[in-house]
């Protein structure tokens, strides 16, 4: 028996029919064609499938889709768009933190979640927040630099808003 799943996806009220045991990752990729959320290991080990559930990073490959009933999910598609990137996305590009790009959506979402709760994180806090993500390409240094840069960009933008 299919189940009706209603939730807020990237700010929009969304309704989709799902199998009762279907995983959020499959619903996003196969039913809603949001392929920005990646499937790496499918076992919780790599972080490529990370999405935000009510603002907190979770693994879509281990999450029964029905768990998001009535809640808010943010995927990488909900962050920015080509003409106007989110500051975290901008910083990742500028700092060379994107190579093959497979880990990037998850890394960006965990970084955004961190910065929303802690606008000026220490290096340790950034490492801790990203500790559930593997990257085969960058060596992580550029990613760390990108998050620091994004923190500055976002703090400056807040400052400007504050003065306006």
């Amino acid at each position: 028996m299919m189940k009706a799943l209603t939730f807020t996806l990237n700010g929009d009220q969304t309704r989709v029919e799902v199998d009762p045991g279907e995983l959020l990752l499959d619903v996003l990729r196969r039913r809603l064609f949001l392929t920005g959320t990646k499937k790496g290991c499918g076992e919780g080990e790599c972080g490529a499938c990370t999405v935000l559930l009510d603002g907190q990073p979770v693994l879509a490959c281990l999450l029964p889709a029905m768990k998001v009933q009535g809640r808010a999910v943010t995927t990488i598609e909900g962050l920015g768009h080509e003409q106007r990137l989110h500051p975290v996305q901008e910083a990742f590009l500028e700092k060379g933190a994107v190579q093959c790009g497979f880990c990037t959506p998850g890394m960006v979402l965990s970084s955004k979640s961190l910065l929303d709760g802690q606008p000026q994180p220490s290096e340790d806090e950034i490492k801790q927040a990203l500790s559930g993500h593997l990257c085969r390409c960058t060596g992580y240094v550029q990613i760390l630099e990108a998050v620091k840069d994004a923190a500055e960009k976002m703090t400056r933008a807040e400052g400007r808003k504050g003065h306006a």
Partner: peptide, 9 residues
Amino acid sequence: VGSPQIRNV
């Protein structure tokens, strides 16, 4: 336990 994403749920 695991990682931040795991500990969240």
